[in-house]
Amino acid sequence: MKSLNNNGVSTCMAGQENYVYFNLMPRLRRKSRYCQYDYRHEEDGELFSTVAPTLEICRQRRDEWLKNKEGK
């Protein structure tokens, strides 16, 4: 499985996104696939990280975070 961090530190570079899908409980036969998502802000390098069922939801959350950040 791809990792989003190295020794607990995100490998996400400024202005980029990294994501990986994983199964929460692979032994259970129900749908438990999630997306772990990191995005590092271009200007100040602040890291946004979330987990959601789909990449689209992660990106929506990121967009909301960016709007709130710009509104400060």
Rank of each mutant, 00 (worst) to 15 (best):
M13P: 07
W65C: 08
L66F: 01
S32R: 09
C35E: 05
M13Q: 14
H41G: 02
L4V: 07
R33G: 11
Y19R: 01
V20F: 01
K2Q: 07
K2T: 13
C35W: 00
M25Y: 04
A52P: 00
D38G: 01
R61K: 09
G8P: 10
R30T: 13
K69E: 12
F48E: 04
A52N: 05
G71L: 12
W65Q: 07
R61V: 03
V20H: 01
A52R: 02
L4G: 03
L24Y: 02
K67W: 03
N18S: 07
R30G: 09
K31V: 15
K72D: 14
E56Q: 10
V51F: 03
G15T: 08
N6W: 01
N23A: 08
K69Y: 05
G8M: 06
K72Q: 14
R61E: 08
N5P: 04
H41W: 02
E17F: 02
L55G: 09
G15L: 03
Y39S: 14
S10Y: 02
K31H: 11
C58Y: 03
N5A: 12
T11A: 11
R59Y: 03
V51A: 00
T54M: 04
V51T: 15
L55T: 11
D44E: 09
L28G: 09
Q36E: 08
T50S: 05
N6V: 09
K31E: 15
F22T: 12
E43Q: 09
L47Q: 02
D44Y: 02
E46A: 13
S32E: 15
L4W: 00
G15Y: 00
L66E: 14
H41Y: 01
T54L: 06
P26E: 14
Y21R: 10
L4E: 07
G71H: 05
F22G: 07
R30L: 15
G45P: 12
R62S: 14
V51D: 01
L4N: 00
E17Y: 00
L28N: 12
L55D: 10
T54D: 07
R33H: 08
I57S: 02
P53D: 10
R27V: 09
C12Y: 01
V20A: 02
H41P: 06
K2I: 14
N6R: 06
K2S: 07
S32Y: 03
P26V: 12
P26I: 10
Q60G: 07
K2L: 11
K69S: 11
M25C: 10
Y19E: 10
S32D: 15
V20G: 00
G71K: 07
K69V: 08
Y37I: 12
V9A: 06
S49C: 13
R29Q: 12
L24T: 12
N5C: 12
H41A: 05
R27K: 08
L4P: 03
V20I: 11
R61A: 04
Y37V: 08
R33C: 13
Y39F: 15
G45H: 04
Q60K: 11
N18V: 13
T50A: 02
K69N: 09
N5G: 09
N6I: 10
N23P: 03
K2H: 00
N18M: 15
R59T: 11
E43M: 05
N23L: 13
G45K: 01
D44I: 11
R30Y: 06
R33M: 14
N7R: 02
R62K: 15
H41E: 15
N18Y: 02
D38P: 03
L66T: 13
N6S: 10
E70T: 09
K2V: 14
G8T: 08
K69H: 10
Y21D: 13
S3N: 10
Y39N: 06
E17T: 12
N5T: 15
